Amino acid sequence: MNFSYYIARRYLFSPGSSNAINIITIIAASGVVIGAMALFLVLSGFAGLKDFSLQFSTYFDPNLKIFPSEGKTFTFTEGQRAKLAKLDGVAHFSEIVEERVFLDFRNKQKTSYIKGVDANYHNVIQTDSILVYGDWLNNNDFQVVAGNGICRELSMGVEQTYTNLLNIYVPKPGKGIPNDPSKAFRTEKAVNIGIYSVNEELDKKYIFATIGLARKLLNLSLDKVTHIELKLSPQANEEELIKNLQSLFDHTIIIKNRAQLNDTLYKMLNTENLVSYLIITLIAIIALFNVAGAIIMMIIDKKSNVKTLYNVGSSLPDIRKIFLFQGSLMTVLGALLGLFLGFVVIVMQQQFGLLMITPSLTYPTKITAMSFIVVFFTITIIGFVASLLASSRINQKLVQ
């Protein structure tokens, strides 16, 4: 066994000659444990919060979404439909026509977006997961499904008859101000047959309609779409599929995956995670430098032993290694104990809901291997640096 390591282990688990030294060592070790546990709890909490925030995008956003590179619409021919259906990796696709509209229901108005979808949309997006009341669209071009927020603002429910109709307006293209404002808009009437809910923002943004109603409202031909949404098969190669899609549409499109569709949300969550990690790491640095203080106090306490070791032939580097190993061992053991305690707390949170966001919603957490790795290496590296600084105080003057 390595001589320096053997002595370091003996020093670590043997009480010092002074109660003050023992108390300082316990405080330093506790700081390591608490720092590791706190950092693990923060990382697990943000991992859970990230998954919780992004789960809504899995309900509403497709695996891939195709946009026109210029303008609002692009042409999607029958030949392209047939080729797209045969592409490897494409499980389902849906044609979309989307535009900003003005809604009027029983003298209450709101601006929103109409999202015209075809009959295959439910294969791309799990409409059953977002529909909270009523029915989803069928082939009737005079039906819509509105968001929960839109229904609240317009005081609109699920209508069983065609007596209370929703008026949908969209401006006609052109220049100048028309003499007759009533001719400045195209309008269609529809009945709301369902209510969906994803999150507060989306619930206020969209009404779903058939693609036929949307095309009629916007006066678009049958081969015009604003987007195409795709659901990929499990074995799909996304990069290869994107290349094939670009070739199919002669590079006149822009393709975004789910992460790119939620780019702002991903950046916000990653930034919050990084800032929280840095703050807790700063606190851990302050706590872990108690290890340096404890090592220095241990050097003073063991000064006579150090002189003896030097006189019997130990070199200064070997003596420095004793206290470097002692501090490193304290850090590693403290990090492991802190990780274990943090793991227990997270499991208890998942099982018993120790911290609640609402009376019915527990704070989301997620245990990942990366959290263990990041915490262990962060704590051990800081502890190693602190121990190295402390052990470097041993010099020729001390051993003489």
Rank of each mutant, 00 (worst) to 15 (best):
V145G: 07
I279C: 07
K86R: 15
L217N: 03
L103Q: 02
V332R: 11
F384E: 04
F249D: 07
G293M: 10
A209V: 08
T264H: 02
Y6I: 10
A214E: 00
V144T: 04
E159N: 15
L202E: 03
V32C: 11
L361H: 05
I299F: 06
N270Q: 04
V374H: 12
E99D: 09
A209R: 02
V32W: 06
I255N: 00
Y59W: 11
L341C: 13
G313A: 04
P62K: 04
I285D: 03
T378W: 11
A284R: 10
F105Y: 08
I382C: 02
V275P: 03
T127R: 06
F3H: 09
T252G: 05
L337K: 02
V124G: 09
G212V: 13
Q349G: 01
F325D: 11
D51I: 10
E78M: 13
S53K: 06
L288S: 01
L324T: 07
N262E: 01
K205P: 03
S155V: 03
G342K: 15
N290M: 13
Y11M: 02
G31Y: 11
V332K: 01
D128R: 14
I296H: 11
V191A: 15
L389T: 09
E99C: 01
I382Q: 02
N237C: 04
D88M: 10
N107C: 04
N192K: 04
F185H: 13
L316W: 00
Q126F: 12
S14W: 06
F76P: 09
S233M: 02
K108D: 00
K175D: 15
F3N: 10
Q126Y: 11
I34W: 03
V124D: 06
I193C: 05
M356Y: 07
G89Y: 00
D203Q: 06
I211R: 14
R81G: 07
M297F: 13
G293N: 08
I381W: 11
T77S: 15
A47R: 11
I168A: 02
T75V: 04
S276F: 12
P178M: 08
G176T: 02
L245K: 00
M297C: 09
D88I: 10
K175W: 12
N139I: 12
I286E: 00
K256I: 04
T362E: 06
M298A: 15
K231D: 00
I7S: 11
T111G: 12
I394L: 06
P171N: 05
V399G: 02
G176F: 10
P234S: 03
L232M: 10
K231P: 03
E188Q: 14
R106C: 04
L241G: 07
